[in-house]
Design a protein around this nucleic acid. Sequence first.
DNA 1: TGGCTATTTGGCTAAATGACCAAATAGCAT
DNA 2: ATGCTATTTGGTCATTTAGCCAAATAGCCA
Lengths: 110, 110
Amino acid sequence: MESYVKPQHEARAKIIKAMAHPSRLFIIEELSKHERCVGELTEMIGSDASTVSKHLSVLKNAGLVTDEKRGNSIYYSLRVPCIMQFMGCVEDVLSANAKQHNAILKCCKG
Amino acid sequence: MESYVKPQHEARAKIIKAMAHPSRLFIIEELSKHERCVGELTEMIGSDASTVSKHLSVLKNAGLVTDEKRGNSIYYSLRVPCIMQFMGCVEDVLSANAKQHNAILKCCKG
DNA sequence: TGGCTATTTGGCTAAATGACCAAATAGCAT
DNA sequence: ATGCTATTTGGTCATTTAGCCAAATAGCCA
């Protein structure tokens, strides 16, 4: 009966889980503009290089980004551009939340 | 400089994190068809009712679902339908992964 | 009131995650 | 070969997550 849930939702959840981190979302958004090497992303994010590297490997394992070694550096790019379209929907949720939050404040503070 | 990352990506990550679980994805998909009460979802998922209840509260806190008490039950429904459009993109990633996986198998097994 | 049914909350435990540092690896340049 | 730069890997630790069970809460009905 849990055949409803697995394995399709498990596979999807892995992809979505890989996106579910602020730094990884930043990376996705940045790569949607143009490819970047690890050093550039590290500087922008401000965490340890090893941390950023691990984030990239999470994204790569999920199939969200690809990497290509060129010269001394490894350049990452976004593999599936449609991901960025989703951000609009996420923003919708956020603004709906904000609206509701304001409504509650207004009603209770009078 | 990490103003690049926070707080916008933090807010988005919370939303996406709430989606990043097989059972919660199932719930989202199910609620996109029609509202459901906890008992129905519990039966479909096959976990403990308390577990499902907690999943629902994660989704509710993220602003992804709303609940409405009617009679003896609490009915949940999807608050932001655009979420389901994203699943198509997730499927794209999965099939791209599968294609690549097959290509690797083919090349190395001969 | 007392007994249902439906749902949530608290407590606990095992597992996963994310951060840092230190060390390893890979490639280019001298 | 040596050193330099870029990136990854391994180890450790604190935090979060997800599951179950037991108990609490809320609403309906007799």
